[in-house]
């Protein structure tokens, strides 16, 4: 149990083992561990970033969808308005056309009637003169009484 040279031998062995461990065992394993830790940390950070990006993209897509819907609604609204206005203006034009046609017809009818009336009046005056000529025979000068006949015709 007493101390002897074994102590020195073990001391040297101890020193050699520690030095070997310090030079050839500890650094490579520690660097592998640290490198892996860094890799994992980077991976986690990347996945965080990707998640954030995905979130942003989803948000953007949603916004764009809403915008597109709005635009579509606006376009439809515009088209409806346009269609309404076209229908209205066409209706109005048609009404005007109809009124114009009707009024033109009326004017024509009126003119026709006036002409007919004129014609009739002329014929009536001629007939009246003719009748009067025949009734009054020779006594009555057609020329002398034409003013009376004309007055009569005008009263028709």
């Amino acid at each position: 149990m007493n101390l002897n040279a074994t102590l020195l031998g073990e001391l040297i062995a101890f020193a050699v083992f520690v030095l070997f461990c310090m030079k050839f065992v500890w650094p490579p394993i520690m660097s592998a561990i640290e490198e892996r830790q860094k890799k994992i940390a980077d991976g986690l950070a990347a996945s965080d970033r990707a998640e954030k990006d995905l979130h942003l993209a989803q948000e953007k897509a949603k916004e764009q969808l809403i915008e597109a819907k709005q635009q579509a609604a606006e376009i439809i609204e515009q088209a409806k308005r346009r269609a309404g206005s076209i229908v209205e203006s066409e209706t109005q034009r048609a009404h005007e056309e109809r009124d114009k046609i009707i009024s033109a017809g009326q004017v024509e009818v009126e003119a026709e009637r006036n002409r007919a009336k004129e014609e009739l009046r002329k014929q009536v005056s001629t007939l009246a003169v003719l009748g009067a000529e025949r009734i009054l025979a020779r006594e009555i000068d057609a020329q002398a009484h034409s003013d009376i006949v004309e007055k009569l015709v005008a009263e028709l």
């Binding site: 083992f17 070997f20 050839f24 065992v25 490579p28 394993i29 592998a32 490198e35 892996r36 890799k39």
Partner: peptide, 13 residues
Amino acid sequence: LWLFRSTAKKATS
């Protein structure tokens, strides 16, 4: 030392 050294040589991250 042999066990740990052989591991250290093959150590991968």
